[in-house]
Amino acid sequence: MWEADPDVLVTDLGDELILMHAARGLMFSLNGPGRVVWQALPGRPQDVAAALARAFDVELPRAEADAGALLADLAARGVVRRA
Rank of each mutant, 00 (worst) to 15 (best):
62 R>Q: 01
57 D>C: 07
29 S>W: 02
57 D>G: 03
31 N>Y: 11
45 P>H: 10
36 V>D: 07
60 L>A: 07
29 S>D: 07
64 E>G: 06
38 W>N: 08
37 V>G: 09
34 G>I: 02
31 N>K: 12
44 R>V: 05
62 R>V: 03
38 W>F: 12
62 R>Y: 01
45 P>E: 11
55 A>R: 03
62 R>E: 05
64 E>A: 10
37 V>Q: 06
63 A>K: 09
29 S>T: 12
56 F>I: 11
58 V>R: 12
61 P>T: 03
60 L>H: 06
58 V>K: 11
54 R>Y: 05
33 P>Q: 04
28 F>P: 00
37 V>E: 05
60 L>D: 04
64 E>S: 12
34 G>N: 03
47 D>A: 14
35 R>S: 15
30 L>D: 09
34 G>A: 01
53 A>R: 01
32 G>F: 03
34 G>Q: 02
31 N>A: 13
62 R>T: 02
37 V>Y: 02
52 L>N: 03
42 P>Y: 00
44 R>T: 07
29 S>R: 14
62 R>D: 00
53 A>W: 00
53 A>D: 04
48 V>R: 11
41 L>D: 11
56 F>N: 15
31 N>V: 04
32 G>K: 10
30 L>M: 08
51 A>N: 15
50 A>L: 13
39 Q>E: 14
36 V>N: 06
40 A>V: 08
45 P>C: 09
61 P>I: 06
40 A>S: 15
58 V>M: 15
49 A>Q: 05
38 W>C: 10
28 F>D: 01
60 L>R: 08
35 R>C: 11
63 A>P: 09
47 D>R: 12
34 G>R: 05
40 A>K: 06
39 Q>Y: 02
36 V>H: 08
29 S>C: 10
50 A>W: 07
60 L>K: 01
49 A>M: 02
52 L>C: 04
55 A>S: 10
33 P>E: 09
39 Q>A: 06
52 L>E: 01
36 V>E: 07
40 A>Q: 08
30 L>I: 02
53 A>F: 00
39 Q>M: 07
45 P>M: 07
47 D>Y: 04
51 A>L: 07
59 E>D: 13
34 G>D: 04
57 D>E: 12
53 A>H: 01
58 V>P: 05
30 L>W: 02
35 R>I: 03
62 R>M: 00
43 G>V: 01
54 R>Q: 14
55 A>L: 00
58 V>E: 12
42 P>T: 01
42 P>W: 00
37 V>S: 08
29 S>M: 08
58 V>S: 10
30 L>H: 02
43 G>S: 01
33 P>W: 00
51 A>H: 14
38 W>V: 11
56 F>L: 15
32 G>E: 14
32 G>C: 06
31 N>T: 04
61 P>K: 10
47 D>C: 09
31 N>C: 07
59 E>R: 14
52 L>G: 04
42 P>M: 08
28 F>I: 00
